[in-house]
Structures are given as C-alpha cells and as structure tokens.
C-alpha cells in the first residue's frame, strides 16, 4: 500500500459528514446491482469502509458521490468475478429477487419494474439507474462505469427499450397475469403520481 499524507482533522470530519449523507444513495445503487437487499447492504457497507480507508486519495471538492459510486461498482464486479460467472450470478440474483419482492404491501407496478430490471444485462441496468434515477449526467456515469460517454448513451437507450418490451410483453411470469398488465399498472401509477388535473 502507498503511504499517503494523512488528512487534516477538519477535512477528515468534512469527509465523514459527506460520506454519511451519501449512504442512502449507496444503498439504493447497491440494491439495484444486487437485487437482494441483504447482499446490497453488505456491499454498501464494504463501500463505506473502503471509501473511508481511501479518504486521503479523494480530492476535496471533486464529485464525491461519483467517487463512492465508482468504489461500490468496482467492489461489486470484483466480488462477482471472485464468486461466480456473471450469468450464473444474474440468474441467482433474479431468482432470489423474485422471492424477496413477493411483498403484499409493495405496489404492483414497482414489483414488476424490479423484476423487469433484474432481467437486463447488468451493464445496461447500471447505466439506466445512474442516469435515470441516480441523477448523474452521461459523462459522470461514463466515468463511474469506466467507459465512453457514447457507450453509456447506447446502454441507456437499449435498457429503456428492453424494459418497455419486458413490461409490455410480460416476459416474466407473475401469478399468471396477462401480458401487458405490467405496463398498464405502471402507466396508471405514473398518471396518478403526476398529480391532479
């Protein structure tokens, strides 16, 4: 390990405060990568630990959210490489998620979206989440994923099309719901959320 100049106490405190405010976002990102909530929290906790240990390599004033998301993503893929081949893990995560999200209190449309999301290849899923939900610009998402901006753009657009296809065709199986029901419930939910007319 490289010996680094330690942070001064004021910067360290600031770093810690900023890191704490990012924890909810790290948990949300981890949940979309792992699918299952317990594995996601383990991943997010590892990320907090790694970010803290690497604090002296963080440049104050740069985008700390992107920096921590990058650590989380690297951690996710290095664990994945260690344990299973990607396809196997995706399959297992999908199966665990299908069980885990069988929550009667959860709105139907959200369950269906989670199921559809877990069916996407992980590089499409992460790109769509970063840009579509995490509030990152394409450039930032490219930096987090270590790829070109154009690659992120095409992954996001492929992910959007694939999601819509899955939701419309009911490519998953949920209590024998007829195809197209998922998209219908998402549309009516979105209409309700967009406020009263």
């Amino acid at each position: 390990m490289v010996e680094r100049t330690p942070m001064d106490p004021a910067s360290e405190n600031q770093f810690k405060r900023d890191l704490v405010t990012l924890i909810p976002h790290l948990r949300a990102f981890a949940r979309t990568l792992c699918g299952d909530a317990a594995a996601a929290d383990d991943l997010a906790q590892d990320t907090v630990m790694k970010a803290w240990d690497a604090r002296s390599s963080y440049q104050m004033g740069t985008n700390m959210k992107a920096w921590t998301f990058m650590i989380l993503r690297n951690q996710f893929y290095s664990e994945k490489r260690r344990s299973w081949r990607q396809t196997q893990l995706d399959q297992e995560a999908a199966e665990r998620t299908l069980v885990a999200i069988d929550d009667p209190a959860s709105p139907l449309a959200l369950d269906e979206l989670r199921q559809a999301l877990i069916m996407l290849p992980s590089e499409q899923r992460e790109a769509l989440i970063l840009v579509g939900a995490g509030g990152f610009a394409y450039e930032e998402a490219a930096e987090i994923c270590g790829c070109a901006v154009g690659t992120v753009k095409s992954r996001v657009s492929r992910a959007r099309r694939a999601l819509q296809g899955i939701l419309e065709e009911g490519a998953y199986d949920r209590d024998g719901l007829p195809a197209g029901d998922a998209m219908r419930s998402i549309l009516s939910d979105a209409e309700r959320l967009s406020g009263p007319r």
């Binding site: 959200l110 979206l113 989670r114 579509g132 998402i186 939910d189 959320l193």
Partner: peptide, 8 residues
Amino acid sequence: IGVKLRQM
C-alpha cells in the same frame, strides 16, 4: 417507466 424508476 422513468417515473417508476426514480420512485424505486
């Protein structure tokens, strides 16, 4: 879909 994604 975008609205639900952000909500999720």
